[in-house]
């Protein structure tokens, strides 16, 4: 049994790579898969915060590649899910502290111990991106329905193809169905027409993402949140299941929220 390495990247910053990595990791672990998340954003580490594991960091990825710590020592086990582990980035160094060969060796050492290795890529197309992409078996591109984010995603897809990786899959993040309906936001079809890659998930804009990230409890732990359910479906698709895409309704009006709540007290439903 050897792990699948999935790199989550986007080009543009702030579209939700780290949130996506954390939540897919949680969702896969909840389904009993052994998962290791690697934060490749050296110098700007975030994954530990989103997962709520910041206070447990002793060693980081640079300590491992420079031989100051063994991989096992640096990996932090999640406080809720024993199947989930995380390798934090170093905060005091920069991207050049690690090179693509070292990333390959690192993931190869991990492959026999877990089922999935998720790599949280930094924004940009430079050294950090090349590190993150080098060991990838699969690539997931995260974009929001904004012209600038889609443009950067297009650039990244070109670079992923040039690195001779399999065709990446797309997560459309922070979709606001109400805005799409009014014609104020790019629709899923518009984004897919430009990027011409397969969709693996749509995550609606959801305030619980922000509250959960601040609390260090990823939304995928919450079965009441729309976004959490979206990540659960993405995890199922990663495992090869054919899960239909949900149609999100505009829940922004108070009345609609009440209607939804009465229809399904567990929230969302779609």
């Amino acid at each position: 049994m050897t792990a699948t390495v999935i790199t989550i990247t986007s080009g543009k910053g702030g579209v939700g790579k780290t949130t996506t990595t954390a939540n897919i990791g949680v969702a896969l672990a909840r389904r009993g898969k052994r998962v290791a998340c690697i934060d490749a954003d050296i110098g700007l580490r975030n994954l530990d915060v989103v997962l709520g594991l910041e206070n447990r960091i002793v060693y980081d990825i640079v300590d491992v590649v420079e031989g100051r710590a063994r991989l096992r020592q640096a990996l932090i086990r999640d406080k809720r899910l024993p199947e989930l582990q995380m390798l934090p980035a170093a905060q005091t160094r920069d991207k050049t502290a690690v090179n693509p060969q070292q990333m390959l060796k690192l993931t190869d050492d991990l492959r026999s111990e877990v089922d999935f290795i998720l790599i949280d890529s930094p924004a940009g197309i430079e050294h950090g991106f090349k590190n993150a992409i080098a060991p990838a078996d699969r690539v997931i591109i995260v974009t929001t329905p904004e012209v600038s984010a889609v443009r950067d995603a297009d650039r990244i897809i070109g670079l992923v193809e040039a690195a001779e990786k399999p065709k990446p899959q797309l997560i459309l993040n922070r979709l606001r169905p109400g805005m799409v309906k009014r014609g104020d936001m790019l629709a899923t079809e518009d984004v897919l027409e430009i990027l011409a890659i397969d969709l693996i998930g749509i995550v609606p804009e959801d305030e619980s993402i922000i509250t959960s990230a601040n609390r260090g409890a990823p939304v995928a732990l919450d079965d009441k949140a729309q976004a959490g359910l979206a990540y659960t479906r993405i995890a199922a698709r990663i495992l090869g299941q054919d899960v239909p895409f949900a149609v999100f309704e505009d829940n922004s009006t108070l009345l609609k929220r009440f209607q939804n709540w009465f229809r399904n007290p567990n929230g969302g439903g779609s």
Binding site: R151, D152, D154, R155, I157, G158, L159, I194, A196
Partner: peptide, 24 residues
């Protein structure tokens, strides 16, 4: 294939593309 953002062709002759030429 499709030319994605950031990709460029410069050629001293004709150019044919089977795919899109995306913005950028």
């Amino acid at each position: 294939r499709t030319l994605r953002s950031g990709q460029t062709i410069r050629y001293a002759g004709h150019v044919a593309v089977m795919g899109d030429v995306n913005a950028g």
